[in-house]
Design a protein around this nucleic acid. Structure first.
Lengths: 312, 312
DNA sequence: AGTCTTCGATCATGGACGCTGATCGCTGGA
DNA sequence: TCCAGCGATCAGCGTCCATGATCGAAGACT
């Protein structure tokens, strides 16, 4: 009755294995789990009896324990199962909270200003029953974490997405452009300025933002550390400062108001690799029809935006 | 203490949910699981208490039950968890059987004859410690099922792979060629024969084989049902019959001995879409270094084979 | 060398919890 | 109207798991 043995496998066993692996000892794990050391010891003993293999190497004495190969492999499965369980829990809590007709969307500023209005208008037209809850975050990392924790159903994100339980869809590639005051010598230049030339200018930048970090590291790679004279969180403020002659800025095209007569927007022709904006969601969680429709609408809207650009 | 509630979740609860969904009633599920109806009833009750939502709609009386939305979603998670658990079990059993240095590979004949010798020679040279166990199957479907059940670590397969817990790597595209007796009028033809012309010929084919089904359906699509005068499982027999003038054959190039002077091999120039051969393995199972090396070696060998072909 | 400390294993015990078997309520069909 | 099918409920029993104390092993410190 091998199969029967595995039926006796308990989730707490797997949790114990993971906790021990994290904490580094039976006793610590017991503390973290609210059990006695004895209990954890017995849990691992049963687990090892079930799988028929030693999972943890206990050298004895105060020496640190280690996972055997079987333990390592089983741990990976255990983590996957726990993750899936968390996803299930998130789905159930969402249903419990009456989220059937609600969609929680994470955004950041450069998306919010340009893409969202069109997208939201079109989506609410076609899906009037769905309530959209927007969550704009200054700290972009937070958005992914919220998706993982099930606090967001889908979020905008700058691809690629780091490893994790995610799936995503590419929406549009957003090139970086140089924004200079209308009278700037760089505007009169016949050719595209080099990164080094840009680094020599006083720079107006964003405060905390993945895009800005990207720009600065690219500029720094050109040999000269950029001289950032002012930072702001707000797209309009940055562009206003540039228009006032405080400095130049390198921004994603999406954040730039191209109708502003005080500034000149210069295509950098890929000297800084463009960022790719996409929508990210949790791989394991339930995707409601509303969520799928939202992604599709976003793809459509962004596709049209890209088409407009190439036409212009 | 919401979190505590979820800690009490038991695998048997999820199994019960799935069994009920499969069997269609509490009582049947109880029978299938070896429990009492009462027990199953209580299991679902606790499960619903844990998740805080009604999972199964019981209309009362002899009417059939149905899953609620929450039940459907949770069931999907439950199935994923069960699948992962089976993968873990397969990994543990493999380790228990001392499979650390063993690699079980599924093949079918057309791969076996051409690719395998080179691949095995090179792999055993670079990995002398790994014992390779080959499993050649006439019934190709069986190979995938064996991978799913954990009885094979990796298998050759004709892509695309149907949905399931699989990952794969493309190895090479194997075009279909027409094999005719040396004196055949088709061999004298200046142009590539059409599928209809081929259908008019007596055909020598393979017995049961995905490739053959593919060929016949393609030929049938050309308007005339092909006239198969003889079938064999064996590549050599098929080619021998063609050489003896019994008929012509449409075969994957990999299965053809191009050195045979009795036959002429005619490129069909993609008139029948080529098959793509790949290696498939279980998405959730542990991939040993040996398995990964095997895939890499296979890719290398097949890459060289493809290069030789284009050179010729 | 001896003692202390740390850590996991072991054991008996008490309590919680899940399964059983019987019974009840409900509903649709004969 | 009665009956069959199905799930809910309840008391009782058995099992199994966490507890708390104790033990053995092995490094660290004096």
């Amino acid at each position: 009755m091998d199969a029967d043995r595995w039926m006796g496998l308990d989730l707490r066993h797997l949790v114990a294995l993971k906790t021990i692996s994290d904490e580094g000892s039976f006793g610590k794990a017991a503390g973290a789990l609210g059990y006695t050391q004895s209990a954890v010891s017995q849990q691992i003993a049963t687990l090892e009896r079930i799988v028929g293999l030693r999972l943890i190497e206990r050298p004895g004495g105060p020496r640190p324990i280690s996972l055997t190969e079987a333990g390592t492999i089983l741990l990976r499965h255990a983590e996957a199962i726990q993750a899936r369980l968390l996803a299930a829990k998130a789905d159930m809590l969402a249903l419990e909270a009456g989220d059937a007709g609600r969609l929680r969307v994470g955004t950041f500023q450069s998306v919010g200003a340009r893409v969202l209005p069109t997208l939201l208008r079109r989506f609410t037209e076609t899906h009037p029953g769905v309530e959209i809850v927007l969550r704009e975050s200054v700290n972009e990392e937070e958005l992914l974490e919220m998706v993982e924790r099930g606090e967001l159903d889908v979020t905008f994100w700058t691809l690629p997405v780091e490893t994790g339980p995610y799936e995503w869809s590419e929406l549009l590639t957003d090139p970086y452009v140089l924004v200079v005051p209308a009278g700037s010598p760089l505007a009169a230049l016949k050719r595209t300025p080099t990164l080094k030339e840009i680094s020599l200018q006083p720079l107006v930048g964003f405060s905390y933002c993945a895009a800005m970090n990207h720009v600065e590291s690219q500029l720094a790679a050109s040999g000269r550390t950029p001289n950032v004279v002012f930072r702001s969180d707000n797209n309009g403020t940055v562009q206003g400062l540039v228009g006032a002659g405080v400095g130049v800025s390198v921004s994603p095209l999406l954040t730039v108001d191209e109708g502003d007569a005080d500034v000149v927007v210069i295509d950098l022709l890929g000297r800084i690799p463009p960022r790719v904006i996409g929508l990210v969601w949790h791989r394991d969680r339930h995707r409601s029809p509303a969520a799928e429709a939202f992604v599709e609408t976003a793809r459509a809207v962004c596709g049209e935006l890209a088409a407009e650009r190439t036409a212009a």
